[in-house]
Design a protein around this nucleic acid. Sequence first.
DNA 1: ACCTAAACATACCATTTGGTCAAATCATTT
DNA 2: AAATGATTTGACCAAATGGTATGTTTAGGT
Lengths: 211, 211
Amino acid sequence: MSSAQKRRVQIRQAILDGAIREFARNGLSGTSTQALADAAGLTKAQLHYYITTKEDLYEEALRFIVEEWRHIFFVSAGPDDPAAVISSYIERKIHHALDYPEVSRLFANEVGRGATVLSRYWGELKTAVDAATAVIEGWIAAGQIRPVDPLLFQMNMWAVTQHYAEYEAQARHLLGTPQGLPLDRDRIIREAQETFLLRCGLPVPNHCTRG
Amino acid sequence: MSSAQKRRVQIRQAILDGAIREFARNGLSGTSTQALADAAGLTKAQLHYYITTKEDLYEEALRFIVEEWRHIFFVSAGPDDPAAVISSYIERKIHHALDYPEVSRLFANEVGRGATVLSRYWGELKTAVDAATAVIEGWIAAGQIRPVDPLLFQMNMWAVTQHYAEYEAQARHLLGTPQGLPLDRDRIIREAQETFLLRCGLPVPNHCTRG
DNA sequence: ACCTAAACATACCATTTGGTCAAATCATTT
DNA sequence: AAATGATTTGACCAAATGGTATGTTTAGGT
């Protein structure tokens, strides 16, 4: 890859990163092209050399998120036991939520507006969810876990893990975590794991005893 | 109250209702005063006769929500047993979320942006949450429920109940509920109750047997 | 050195933005 | 009916909006 190509890729990445930040904060209509340009360190005209319209960039950002999540998440049909799969899912999901809160917020924002843009990519998500549903139903049929509503079980795990990205400000305030310091991830992960393991009638590993 | 006064109250209510709708959909910066005026059935100039600035109206909407929620929600220290308190909280919260999704979305949006406006009213919320924490800790001390992280337990209940307002579009798609029909509330409520009752080590009432 | 195409900058466009203002209308009270 | 205050209107403002057009610079290959 020539240095010119490398530079172009870098700029495109900067645009995408900035766009996710800005769109997550102010939504589609609340984000100006000027703000997008600034966030990427470009001129407005320069930005328009790389993108066509604001809406296009917005859709690209969403597509990027969906693609990324499809690779990272969704309960996969591993050979593992249910407890391990659930624990791992929750852990990974919460880490991601706290590492990239803007990504989660942008997604939430779009769905909250009715997901008019996102709905185009919902087929992929539905497929992944259906696969996970099949896995969970298998667990239930095999008597490995207490019966659950597979779909709602997934949605509730999603809700809880996502929450700490979307409500980070509130969590900070209620937990008394100052602005600079990170949230207590282990504490959050443990409580979430405990909740959904117990929901499945699975035993909870007693890490260290709680204070 | 004279008819003139009555009319004024009606207009103010229309403005507030419209504002919650619009702000919930497009955020503060994404909502134009024109849109706010249209939503209330007024002229832009007429709107400015009743409000001073967009920001003021936004803050008023948030204040209204906080005040409303303070009356309706938060685990109250009733004489009831834990199971009844938790079940009732979840049921009321989910009904409210599905009845007034815009309210939940506006709140979520504001918190997602860092809650810069809302933070002024967080004292009240914190008080209510602390009171509930004390109640839950009492349950634990009395051996009435399995030990939980009281704060995170509340946040997770909030996350799940809130979810069906914020992600209504996604829930519709995954549950296969067409646009016109309402979501299956009983199903959602039951799964949520089961999850958080089991988290507390409490028995689940076996309503009707599940299909 | 030279040519071509990619990358960038300045100035610009019509429209929309949040908000104001004086004048006109309405309702109410005397 | 006249006076008075509350309400409504349309015109208006400077600034910001999304996006373009036209030129200028830069980089890479020959």
